[in-house]
Design a protein around this nucleic acid. Structure first.
Length: 151
DNA sequence: GCCAACGTTGGC
DNA sequence: GCCAACGTTGGC
């Protein structure tokens, strides 16, 4: 499967990921059940687009690889974390994270505006009205189409 | 189980 | 900053 994962660049941008050791980090803080279920469905080495949301030019900025499959998100157990959830207990964790590694950073952002212009992408969950899901699958044909835009 | 109220997301 | 759309909560 292919994926798309959103992050607000003011919180965590593609440059932040790039600056990590081995360009790897934990994708944590997902607090939506559907998004969590997708996180748990991710397999080793699967690829995901990195999407910048809630910013001047929202869009896809690069590609990541899943380097570790889902395990309990410890930020949910940490009262000092912004992602703390008292209802998630370690014996029965509610939230999960994965580890990702940056594979490529696009020289130019593929903007949401640009994506919307392509009728072949109109079925993408990302582009549906009111869609707020932060982790979602991407169809192979859509993945290829978007990759060709990055070239 | 319904649904109003609320908080959040995210484009604009 | 605005606000539509959405998911979650909690009273009943």
């Amino acid at each position: 499967m292919y994926w798309l994962m959103k992050s607000e660049p003011t919180t965590f941008s593609i440059l932040d990921l790039k600056s990590k050791p081995q360009s790897r980090d934990q994708w944590e803080g997902v607090r939506n059940y559907e998004a969590r279920n997708y996180l748990k469905a991710m397999k080793q080495d699967e690829l995901a687009f990195f999407y910048h949301s809630n910013c001047t030019v929202p869009g896809i900025v690069g590609i990541m690889k899943v380097t570790r499959t889902a395990w309990p998100d410890r930020t949910a157990f940490d009262p000092s974390s912004a992602y703390f959830d008292p209802q998630s207990i370690s014996e029965n964790p509610r939230w999960y994270c994965v580890e990702v590694e940056l594979i490529s950073s696009f020289s130019k952002i593929i903007s949401l505006q640009q994506l919307r212009r392509l009728s072949s992408l109109s079925r993408m969950r990302l582009l549906q009205k009111g869609s707020r899901l932060s982790v979602m699958p991407v169809r192979e044909a859509e993945w290829e189409m978007i990759l060709s835009l990055a070239a």
